[in-house]
Design a protein around this nucleic acid. Structure first.
Lengths: 237, 237
DNA sequence: CGACATCTTGATCAGGGTCAAACCCAGTGG
DNA sequence: CCACTGGGTTTGACCCTGATCAAGATGTCG
């Protein structure tokens, strides 16, 4: 029974697209589903890597803690058909580099033993190729994240977030703490900045639902125009 | 002539260790050497990716610019036998994500056309495997970098740098601007912090050569002890 | 010796982290 | 129906790190 469902899921995972059914089957056979309540952990940073996870439903947040645990930084939030610990699975000294917890209450994931995954990937050139492309993309994302965190200030990051998630449709905001973790700060500051944006008439807030009013100005704040002009200048030098 | 030298170099590149001579030969044939003076660029961020580089001698700095170019952040410095743009080479929408420039005056690199590299890697399972492991390692490094930049403050980062580079042997410091780019700040602050460390008796500075006096205290400042204890606590929860 | 880069240092400022109090809601149970 | 409680939010006061600007000191090299 399980292999059926597992296979159905695997078939729809982006990086497994190129693979033959036959390559996926052994993987599906060795996987098992896991149900989690909101807040439950898939793994903690520092534990030795045993599985790679594919989200079946719900969503999973991957994050790192600052020493002392006072602050946390969300690295990514993965929805259905996305991988969790996809990179850690291929590290030699295999220890999870981050924590992962379920964000929504019925979250279901498929756990795949890492050796099985490694075997499947190493034996199937098309898979290896897909994995390489995936890693490359991930790394580019991470780089983007890095310099937005290092170079730009909170206002820009928040504006960018709002444009991403609430650009045209109203959007239910996560709690301030979740936002803070996402943007690399603390809840209080999120509250202040949102208030500021509201006072400037850029957004409307109604019971944790946000609607963007002034897209143009928000984009300016997010540094989009600047970045574009910048890229041009950079290239020209 | 060139293929000879290129092959000799490739044989010593860590990620090509597992490969057969025969797999490397076509690569070597399509590569060519490039000499660069200090400060010359191998490529700029935003240019389309044409080559992957292997450092033959000297060193290459890979860095990103903040919008406006006011500040820069050094991602890594690669010495002989190391790759530059190793990840970018496998991205589909292939544009360099960073700038790369020679750091020492006679720096020599071997440029390998990306399609040649891709072919070699995709046709040789052991190579693909090595590339995957390499990417995973790189990603872990980047994550470490990220949270040291986000979570810890300058004193800690500088202390960590000093421990890394000058722990027992005296070490010729790079210029303050280079240090600043490495640690994500500006030269003035580096100057102040170094002065502070000196006044505390942690280091001795003599014409840009630094020697660490109080390793223990420096390690404490770097948060090493904290981090360790932390990891333990983390794991225990 | 002059030109130029780098380093040092002071003065000042802004972003944002911290702490604490007040507030705004749900639920929940009396 | 109403206090009571507890999570999340808002706000004020305060402080600290690090950025910026500007002047001077130091060095290095032709």
């Amino acid at each position: 029974m399980t292999p059926e469902r597992a296979l159905a899921l695997l078939r729809h995972v982006p990086i497994f697209q190129g693979a033959q059914e036959a390559d996926l089957l052994p993987l599906a056979e060795r996987g098992h589903f896991l149900g989690l309540m909101r807040g439950r952990h898939l793994f903690q940073a520092g534990q030795t890597v045993e599985s790679l996870y594919v989200v079946a439903s719900g969503s999973v947040r991957v994050y790192r803690l600052a020493r002392g645990g006072r602050r946390e930084l969300t690295l990514h939030v993965e929805g259905p058909r996305q991988l969790v610990a996809g990179i850690a699975a291929f590290q030699s000294r295999a220890v999870y580099p981050a924590h992962a917890q379920a964000l929504q209450s019925p979250t279901e994931v498929l756990a795949l033993p890492v050796e099985a995954v490694r075997q499947a990937v190493f034996n199937t050139p098309t898979l290896a190729q897909a994995v390489i492309a995936y890693f490359a993309r991930r790394q580019a994302e991470l780089l983007g994240r890095l310099d937005s965190l290092v170079f730009s200030e909170l206002g820009e990051r928040l504006a960018a977030y709002l444009l991403d998630h609430a650009a045209e449709t109203p959007h239910a905001l996560p709690t301030n703490s979740e936002l803070a973790a996402l943007l690399g700060t603390v809840p209080e500051i999120i509250s202040r900045k949102l208030g500021e944006f509201y006072r400037l008439g850029l957004i409307v807030l109604e019971r944790r639902t946000v609607r963007v009013c002034d897209v143009a100005e928000l984009a300016r704040l997010a540094g989009h125009t600047v970045t574009a002009e910048d890229a041009a200048r950079e290239a020209g030098r």
